[in-house]
Nucleic acid binder design. Structure first.
Lengths: 348, 348
DNA sequence: TCAATAAATTGGAACGTTCTAAATTGCAAC
DNA sequence: GTTGCAATTTAGAACGTTCCAATTTATTGA
C-alpha cells in the first residue's frame, strides 16, 4: 500500500537543496536563510515527510532523544495517574515526550520496562518504585549517566534524586488536629507495615502522640491492605479494642473511605460519631459525604516538580543527587466534625 | 563519567566472534550454535551491553519496532487508566512495549502526541480520541499502513477498527431494571449533549421507555458535566420538575455518585428514597455506600480486547477495519433498593 | 580419502539522520 | 575587478544495527 518511506534526501531533491540543508532546517538552525527554510518546510508538508527520530538518535547523544520515561507502580491508583499527568504537562511544554509504563508492583516487570526504556534511549527517568525494589536495579542506569528521579517512595542506598512527601510531618499534623478537637484515643489505621512509607507515617503518629502528652498504645496502630476494603477491615479490628478509639488518622484516603464504610455498617456516622483523617487528598475527598479531612500532597504538583528536577539534570549534563521533601498540608473538611462536644459521649 | 557506548562490535571482539553472529544471537536466531550463543550472552551480561533499538529500527520495518502507542483523552479518569492497564497486560506479554500518552481532551496536544509517536516508529496505535477529534487527523497515519484501533469513542468517517461499548443496550437494560422495580418516572442524568456517546445512551433510554410503554418526557433528561459535581447539579435540577422522577439512570458512575451526594444533601437516602443506576462500574462502585447498581463495561477487558485486535492487525500486515461493540452487563447492587414497596410512598 | 551437503559464521552494504570541515556564495570595501 | 569576510550551503563520514551473499567449518555417505 504505502510506498517506501520518505527521507530527508527525497525532500532535498524536491526542494533543490542538499540533505544537509534539510537537516539544518529540521533542527531549526539559524544558519539557513529564511527563504530556503520556508521552501524546505513547504516541500516537507507537501510530500508528507515524517521525521525518523531513531536515525537521528543514532548520531545525537541520547540526551537529545527527547523521551522522558515515567514508571509508576500502580496506574489504577488515581494518585499515580495524577502524578503522571503532572509530569506530562511540564515535560510536554519542554518539547519532550512522555513514555509512561506501569509495573503493577511487580519488580520483574519493572526491570523489563526500565530495560526497554533504556534501549529506546530515554533522556531521563522518573520512577515510583514497585514495592520491594532493590536500589541496585537502577545502578547501571545511573552509572551510564542517565538522570533518574525517584518519587513517592525513596530508595535508600542509591545516589539518585528523590522527591517524597513529608510523611512524618503530615501524619503529625493530622494527629494534632484530632487532639485539638478533644480526642485522646487516636488510632492509626491501614498500610503495609513493611514499607518505608508506612514506617515514616507511623513515626509521625508516634511523634505527635508523644509531643501531645498522650500514651502511645501499640494496639491502636492496625495495619491493613491500603485500600478501601482494607479500611473496612482495619476499623473492624480497631473497634474490638477494649478502650476504643474515638478518631483515626488513616494511611491514605482509600483506607479512610473504607473506614467510613465500616463505621456506617456499625451505625456510626463518620464526622459525628467518629473522626477520620485521610492522607493524599484524592479528587473524591472533596465531594465524598462527609467530605474528607485529609493531608493533601497534590500529586500533580509533585509530578511537575519531579519533571522540573529531571529536566534540570538533563540540561546540566550531570547533576548531583538532590533529595526533596515535598511539603504537605492539612485540609479540614467534614469527616472530623466540629469537635464542639466531647467525642466520648457520642460512642456506643 | 561513562565511557563510549558499548556496541555489538565490542561484544563481538570480546567474545571472539563477528558482529553478525552477535546480531543473530540478539534476534534469537536458530542458526547459531548453542555454545556460541551462551558465550555471547555471557559476554553481553558481563560487559553490561545495552541494545540500541533505534539503530535496529533503521534496518527493520517499523512493524518490528516493538512499540505500541496508547493515547487516552483523560488519564485522571480511572476508566482510562484501567483501560491502559488492560492494554498493557497483553501488549507486554506479546513482547511489545507500551507508550502511553494523555491528551487531556486537547486535540492539538493529541496531534502532537500522535506525530511524536509516529516519529518514534510505533508498530500500532490504540486511541481513545479527545472530544471533537476530526477523523481526518488519523488519515495519514492509517494511509502509511500503521494499524490503528479506536476505543470508547467512535470516529465516524474513518476506515479504522474500533471497539465501543454497547451504550444503547446498556442504558436500555438499566431503564428496564428500574421499570421492573416499579418505577415509571425515570430520569436520564448527566453527560455532554454534544458527544456521540451521549447520543447513544440517550437513545437507549428513549428506546427502553418506549418499549416499556412509558411516556418519554424531554424534561427528564438533564445533561451536565460528566463528573461527580455534575451529578449533584443534575439531580438538583431534576428535583425541580413538577412531576418528580423516582429513579434515574446516570450518564456514568461519577455522575451517579454525585447524584447520591445530592440526594443526601436533600435528606433522601439513595437506594431507599430514590433509585440510581450508574454506567461504567468503576472500582469504587462495589465498595461505595450504598453499593452502586451500574452497567459494567470492564475497561480492562476492553483494553485487552483492543490490544488483541491491534496485534492481530500488526501480524497480518494489513487488516481490514473491524468494528466491535463490546457487550455490557447490568450489575445489581444496593442503589436501587429492593423494589418491594411503591417508590412513590417514600418520597417527600 | 573425497565429494557433497548441511550447519554455522562472516564481511560489507544498507538504513536515515547529524556532524565536521570544507566549499561556495554574497557583499562591502578597496 | 579584486580581496576579505561573513553568511550559506554542501559532500561525505560517522552512528549501531540488520540483511544478503558468500565463506568457512562440520557432517555425512560413498
Amino acid at each position: 500500500m504505502s510506498k517506501a518511506r520518505l527521507t530527508v534526501i527525497d525532500i532535498a531533491k524536491a526542494a533543490g537543496v542538499s540533505k544537509s540543508t534539510v537537516s539544518l532546517v529540521l533542527q531549526g538552525s539559524p544558519l539557513v536563510k529564511e527563504a530556503t527554510r520556508s521552501k524546505v518546510n513547504a516541500t516537507m508538508r507537501e510530500l508528507g515527510y515524517v521525521y525518523n527520530r531513531g536515525a537521528a538518535n543514532l548520531r545525537q547523544a541520547s540526551a537529545r532523544s527527547g523521551i522522558i520515561g515515567v514508571v509508576v507502580n500502580d496506574l489504577t491508583n488515581s494518585f499515580f495517574a495524577e502524578l503522571a499527568v503532572g509530569v506530562d504537562t511540564v515535560v510536554q511544554s519542554a518539547g519532550f515526550v512522555q513514555f509512561l509504563s506501569n509495573t503493577s508492583e511487580n519488580t520483574d516487570r519493572q526491570r523489563e520496562v526500565v530495560a526497554s526504556m533504556r534501549e529506546h534511549g530515554i533522556s531521563g527517568l522518573i520512577v515510583s518504585p514497585a514495592r520491594a525494589t532493590d536500589a541496585a536495579d537502577f545502578k547501571p542506569l545511573v552509572a551510564s549517566g542517565i538522570p533518574v528521579v525517584v518519587v513517592v517512595r525513596s530508595l535508600p542506598g542509591a545516589r539518585m534524586s528523590s522527591i517524597v512527601s513529608d510523611n512524618v510531618g503530615g501524619v503529625a499534623m493530622a494527629v494534632k488536629h484530632l487532639v485539638s478537637l478533644g480526642h485522646s484515643r487516636i488510632a492509626f489505621l491501614g498500610g503495609f507495615p513493611d514499607t518505608a512509607v508506612f514506617a515514616e507515617r507511623r513515626s509521625g503518629y508516634r511523634k505527635a502522640m508523644d509531643e501531645s502528652g498522650l500514651k502511645f498504645d501499640e494496639e491502636l496502630v492496625v495495619p491493613s491492605i491500603p485500600s478501601r476494603a482494607g479500611g473496612v477491615e482495619a476499623i473492624g479490628r480497631a473497634m474490638t479494642i477494649s478502650d476504643r478509639p474515638t478518631g483515626a488518622v488513616c494511611f491514605n484516603d482509600a483506607v479512610a473511605f473504607g473506614v467510613c464504610d465500616g463505621l456506617r455498617a456499625r451505625r456510626m456516622e463518620p464526622g459525628r460519631d467518629f473522626a477520620v483523617v485521610g492522607f493524599d487528598d484524592v479528587i473524591e475527598a472533596k465531594t465524598a459525604v462527609p467530605a474528607l479531612t485529609t493531608i493533601s500532597v497534590d500529586p500533580q504538583a509533585m509530578g511537575r516538580r519531579a519533571a522540573h528536577l529531571l529536566l534540570k539534570q538533563i540540561n546540566a549534563g550531570k547533576a548531583d543527587a538532590e533529595n526533596i521533601i515535598a511539603a504537605v498540608r492539612l485540609v479540614v473538611r467534614q469527616s472530623c466534625g466540629t469537635g464542639q462536644s466531647k467525642p466520648e459521649g457520642k460512642l456506643g
